Simulated scan of single mutants.
Amino acid sequence: MQNAIIITQKALDATPKPRLDSVLSVCLQIPRAQALQLIKHQQILLNDTLCTKASAQVALGDVLGVLTPHSQPQTRDYDSLEAITELKPEFLDIEILHQDSEFLVINKPPNIVIHEAPSLKEPTLVDWIKLTQSPIRNLCGDLRYGIVHRLDRQTSGALAIAKTPQAHNALSAQLKSRQMGRYYLALIANPLKKATIVECYLGRHPKNRLKMTKLTRHDARAHTGLRYSKSVFAPLLDCTHSRQSLQLVAVKLFTGRTHQIRAHLESLGRHIIGDTLYGYKGEFGEYRVLLHAYLMYVSHPKGSSILSQEHCLLSRFVKGVNPSCSSLRDHTASKSHCLDSLDSTTSLVAGDSDSIDSPLVFKAPLFADMIAFLERYFDKDKLNEVLSPRYILDCFA
Rank of each mutant, 00 (worst) to 15 (best):
G65M: 03
I94S: 11
F91D: 03
I114A: 06
A83T: 07
Y78E: 08
K108G: 11
I96H: 08
S101M: 03
V66K: 05
P110D: 09
P73F: 02
K121Y: 05
G61C: 02
S80N: 06
A117R: 07
K121M: 01
L81P: 03
E102C: 02
I112S: 05
N111H: 14
L81V: 04
E82C: 02
D100Y: 14
E86F: 11
T85M: 05
A83G: 05
L67I: 09
R76D: 09
N107G: 07
K108Y: 07
I96D: 04
F103S: 10
K108H: 08
R76Y: 11
K121N: 13
L64Q: 00
A59F: 10
S101D: 15
L67S: 10
I96S: 14
P73W: 03
Q72C: 02
E86P: 00
V66S: 02
L87R: 14
R76F: 06
A117K: 09
H115L: 05
S101R: 15
I84Q: 10
P118G: 04
S119M: 02
A59E: 11
H115T: 01
I106S: 05
Q74G: 01
Y78N: 08
F91G: 05
S71H: 04
L81I: 12
I96N: 11
H70W: 01
N107A: 09
L87T: 08
L81N: 10
Y78F: 15
G61E: 11
I96C: 15
D100G: 09
E86H: 14
E82S: 13
H98N: 09
N111L: 03
V63H: 05
E82V: 03
A59D: 08
R76P: 00
L60Q: 08
L87A: 14
T85N: 13
E86K: 13
Q74N: 07
E122D: 03
V113W: 04
T75P: 00
V66L: 06
Y78A: 04
L87H: 13
T68C: 02
R76Q: 13
